[in-house]
Each structure stands twice: as structure tokens, then as C-alpha cells.
Design a protein around this nucleic acid. Structure first.
Lengths: 210, 210
DNA sequence: TAGATTGTTAATCGATTAACAATC
DNA sequence: TAGATTGTTAATCGATTAACAATC
């Protein structure tokens, strides 16, 4: 049964998928929720509940068919139909993401990058052309782009976000460490490296004051 | 009063800090929790509770002293004393992180990178030397490195993680999309871009089947 | 003082975990 | 059949939000 899914569950789905596709699992045709849970350090009930929201179900005493589950997860996550995206901000982080080719696997396809600095226009970074900001609206419109990636400095992030929304972008992946205000129907997903570092840093501090 | 803090709160702290340091806030000496909440799209009670765990407190009718709060947050997050780290995996993502200089601000200092491919040894990437893997243990030991960043392919991640742990690493920042098994006292923080993409992708899919 | 704002204690909400019936 | 494993309903747990007393 496919029902609505919490963000927590949704974010675990790629992890299941990754495990099922990994070399170590290739030999098994069926996997129990217990086996999956142990491999990922989760609880088996959680695994069953997560998978129930995506898959056509497992078989009692047998478990989940690996191949079927992979297919169900990929479909649910949209890895098969690719999503075109644009990126704004060709600084270090932006260039890094343009060069990194790992997103294809997840169905993300960055078709164009934009930068405030017009002198970058015409260059390519990892096969993606860098264009002047003035062309953003036109391209989003013509190519029906729905995903925008923000890798500009904090100060510029909100205005770029506004421009994206005005150009028809429906989902924003924000790497600037700042809150973005958007209309209700637009999704902002913050990629918050500072938050991760906070967790690491505090763990160490607490270790050494115990 | 400084009490123990949930991971959720901890991860919001850099966001508060970022806001307080932003240009738009420079003019205010004191800020109410309500003003902060509105700027970040949070609830003011949550802001007060979050800040209570870090700061020496605000003043009724006045709010929180911006400067003091910045100092308290920076202290709590350890932005002042820098954390040395090593990175393993000088592929595209690894190089991107080495080149990206934004981590300094958060007190993270990558002192050396390692790669399986010895032909990379001796090169530099963003001022960080790339060394052969065989030198990892020795360097971690001598420099008392406690943070390890993993940007190797999934298949190599667990063995690199084991090597890090054996070399004295206490906190692992894992960019490989896989679960890592570690002893209890070691912290693994997963930077899960696939999870973010899952959220974006499903948002779009649901928008178009409504 | 009156009123705004803090900080704390209690209520709500949602996610995780437990218990257990269904089933192959 | 017996037993392992699924899927669902109920209980627990923790984070968020609400209510309100304290205070400048």
C-alpha cells in the first residue's frame, strides 16, 4: 500500500535503495526487514513501516524481493524520469557541484548555471554552460525547469530565490546558510553543512569535558 | 542556563548565528525572540527555548543582546577554537570540499587529504597536500586529528572509516551514501545529498499528480 | 505602574517502538 | 503443521507549541 510518507521516512528511502543495490546484497533474492535493519543500524519495525509506504509488500516468512523493491524505490523517488535543474552561483561550491557527476544517478540533471559576474558567461564547468543572470527567466520558462540550486553568498540568496520563483521554479535546493522566504507552494530544502559541523564539533567538545 | 541540547536545536544554532551576523541585523543592539522567529520562519517559543540552552539569557522587555548572543553561540559551537580534520577520497567531491574555503568560518581546518591512488600523492588541492593512504595513521596520531571526512566511493567507505577509527578519529563526516558501522563512542554525521534530492523530487511529483 | 518580553511548566503533536494478529 | 516474517493497531517517547507566571 502506498500512503503518504513523512519527511523522515522519505529521507531514509535512498539509504535503503543504496543498500539493496550494493555489492554485498547482490546474492540475495529476498531480504527480511530484520536483515535490512541490521545492515543499516535501524529497527526492523521502522524498516517495515518505511517500506510499506513505497512497496507492494513483502512475503511473510520470505521477506522483500530485492529486485522489486529496488524498482519500487526508484519509481517512488523519481530516479527514472530525470529532473532538469539550474544552478545559480558559480563560485567554489557551485563549480564543485557542477563538476560532481554523482547527481545523475538520482535523476538530477543540471542544464545551465548562472552567475552575477558576466565575465564568466560563455565558460563551461563540467559540461554545463555558465550564462548571465539576465537569461535565467527565459531559460527556465522555455525548458520548463522546476528545480533551482542556490550556491550564491548569503547576501544574494534571497533575491536569487525570488528570481527563481518568479521564473517558475517550484523547488529550491539552498546551499546558502540562510533562511529563504518563499510562497507557500514552493519547497525549500536547505543543505546545511554548518548544521552538520555543529553536531561534529559539539560531540568533540563534550567528549573532552566529560 | 546551559543545559543539554537536542540535535534539532543544535542544528538550528548556526542559523541563529548566521542571522545575527548578517548585515540586516547590524543595526539592532537587542533582538526579541519574536523578531528572530519572524526572520527565520520559526516560532518564538522555540527560539527562546533554543537560545536558553546556549546563552546567559535575555532581558524581559528588551530581548537578547546581539553581540553577547553571537559570542555565546560561537563559543558553544566551537567556532573559535579550530578543529583540524583530514579528508579521504580526492575525487570530484573531495576536491570540491578541499577547494571550498567556507569551512574555516566554522572552525574546520582540513590539514591533509589522502587518496588510494598514489599517483595523486604530492599534489595539492586548495593548499591541502594529498598524501598516500599509508601515511594516514601516522599523521592523525602526530597531529592529534579527531575529525575525518569521507568522500570515497560507497564500496570503500567502511574500510576507510575503520582505518580512521583505528587512527584515533572520533568524529566522521560521511559524504558516501552508505551506513557506516562504528564503535559506540564514535560519531558519524552523514551528509546525505540523496536524501535532500528525494525530498525535492517527491515534492515535484506530488505537485503534478494532485 | 502597565506592558512587553522572558523563561518554565504543561499540553499537543508526530515519529518511533512495541505488541500482536495475519499469513505463507 | 510450526515457525518465521509481514503489516497494523496501540503505547511510548521526544520535540514542538501553548499557557502563564516572573520581571524589567
Amino acid at each position: 500500500m502506498v500512503t503518504s510518507v513523512s519527511v523522515q521516512t522519505l529521507q531514509r528511502l535512498p539509504i535503503y535503495l543504496n543498500l539493496l543495490k550494493s555489492d554485498s546484497m547482490q546474492s540475495a533474492a529476498y531480504l527480511s526487514s530484520k536483515a535490512i535493519a541490521e545492515a543499516l543500524g535501524l529497527h526492523e519495525i521502522q524498516v517495515r513501516k518505511d517500506l510499506a509506504s513505497v512497496s507492494s509488500g513483502g512475503k511473510p516468512k520470505v521477506g522483500f524481493c530485492r529486485i522489486t523493491l529496488i524498482r519500487d524505490l526508484e519509481n517512488y523517488l523519481g530516479y527514472n524520469d530525470s529532473n532538469d535543474a539550474i544552478l545559480v552561483g558559480s563560485g567554489k561550491l557551485g563549480k564543485a557541484l557542477l563538476t560532481y557527476d554523482g547527481f545523475k544517478e538520482y535523476g538530477l540533471n543540471i542544464v545551465a548555471a548562472f552567475d552575477n559576474d558576466d565575465s564568466l558567461a560563455g565558460q563551461k564547468e563540467g559540461n554545463v554552460p555558465i550564462l548571465p543572470l539576465t537569461k535565467l527567466s527565459d531559460i527556465c520558462d522555455r525548458m520548463k525547469i522546476r528545480i533551482g540550486i542556490i550556491t550564491v553568498p548569503t547576501t544574494a540568496a534571497q533575491s536569487i530565490c525570488d528570481l527563481m520563483v518568479a521564473s517558475g521554479i517550484l523547488a529550491v535546493w539552498n546551499f546558502a546558510p540562510t533562511h529563504l522566504d518563499v510562497p507557500e507552494h514552493i519547497l525549500v530544502k536547505n543543505e546545511n553543512m554548518a548544521a552538520s559541523l555543529a553536531v561534529l564539533s559539539r560531540h568533540l567538545m563534550e567528549k573532552f569535558t566529560d
